[in-house]
Simulated assay, not measured.
Amino acid sequence: MPKKIKKIGVLTSGGDSPGMNSAIRSVARTCAYHNIECVGVYRGYEGLIEGDFKPMDARSVKGILNKGGTILKSARSKEFRTKEGRLQAFNSLTNAGVDGLIVIGGDGSFSGALVLNQEYNFPVIGIPGTIDNDIYGTSHTLGFDTALNTVVDAIDKIRDTASSHNRLFFIEVMGRDVGHIALNAGIAGGAEEILIPEEDLGLDRLVESLNRSRKSGKSSSIVIVAEGDKIGKNVFELKDFVDENLEDYDVRVSVLGHMQRGGSPSCFDRVLASRMGVKAVESLLEGKSNYMVGLKNGEMKLTPLESAIKGKTKINLELLRVSDIMSI
């Protein structure tokens, strides 16, 4: 029989995302509801190694539901990549009487949780927190919805100045390996073209699209570019290409960068984080381990951590078609 869980640790790791604090709050309060202890681990796996723990109860997490970032901080840990570092982390957990660990982060964070379980049979559950929405096993990761709202708001503001000056704006958004932010925000923001890693549209199509837009009467254009798009080396190279090949355009570049990670989480992300925290704690109490909690068809479901790490999300082909129709 699995060991009875009496104390649960929670940490955040990797890049921060809106909703992480909401998830921390949910974990702490679910533990309190079930009359078990909860400890927050500061600075991710680095804090796990150093034993940087702090008890958390229902009152200690008040006022963080609407806060961006993570009160537990996040840090990369080279030492945790070593067996010696992981042994020290395990000893820190054991010495603190922690029986299970909830890791909030992305695939790199989950990889750390998985190896900790494999080496020491320590119970772990993952909560997907990343704005890129690139984790297999959930339709939405924590922070994705908030990031979309942030990007759309920025597009709306940039369009105001683009229209005033008859300019073409390349707007770069996050998405090194996937184009979920670019595709969704591009449609919502009325972009004339959307460039994503999954679809190599090519420079010729870009020029053709911009020419078509000009001939149809559009005096300004917005092109959304995921940072991992394969057409050019970077968004500034795209600007240079258009400058050289389309004389009528006054081209500007706006890189939204890390502003996409910040800000108060949306209603959707707050509710999602609350649901995920409850599911994560109760899964550990039920003796489950090596799973990630995720949203599937509106319900909280478990996906094996290994599948979440190795699986690939797919771009919504319907949204690609919608994008083409809307940009006419």
Results as ranks from 00 to 15, higher is better:
K301R: 15
R76K: 15
L246Q: 02
G277E: 05
A89C: 03
P265T: 07
N66R: 11
M1R: 06
K218R: 14
I224L: 09
K7D: 12
S220N: 14
G15W: 00
K230W: 09
S323T: 10
S17G: 07
E299H: 10
S163F: 15
D229L: 03
K4V: 08
P55I: 11
F241E: 08
P128E: 10
K312L: 07
S164I: 03
K218N: 12
I328G: 11
L183R: 03
D243K: 10
G257C: 05
G179F: 06
L256I: 04
K215A: 14
F90H: 13
K312E: 14
N95C: 01
D204N: 14
V242Y: 07
A58T: 08
Q118E: 15
D132Y: 05
A113H: 10
V293K: 13
E247S: 12
R43K: 05
D132Q: 03
E237F: 09
G19F: 00
E84V: 07
E198W: 09
N91G: 05
T138F: 09
D145V: 12
G186F: 10
R270A: 01
V151D: 10
K312H: 13
E46Y: 07
P265M: 05
G97C: 13
E299S: 08
L87S: 09
S60D: 15
N234M: 00
K3S: 14
E172V: 06
S109N: 13
I171S: 05
I135M: 11
A58V: 12
L319V: 03
L93C: 02
N234H: 06
M259Y: 00
V98G: 03
N35I: 00
G189N: 09
V278G: 11
K218I: 01
C267F: 03
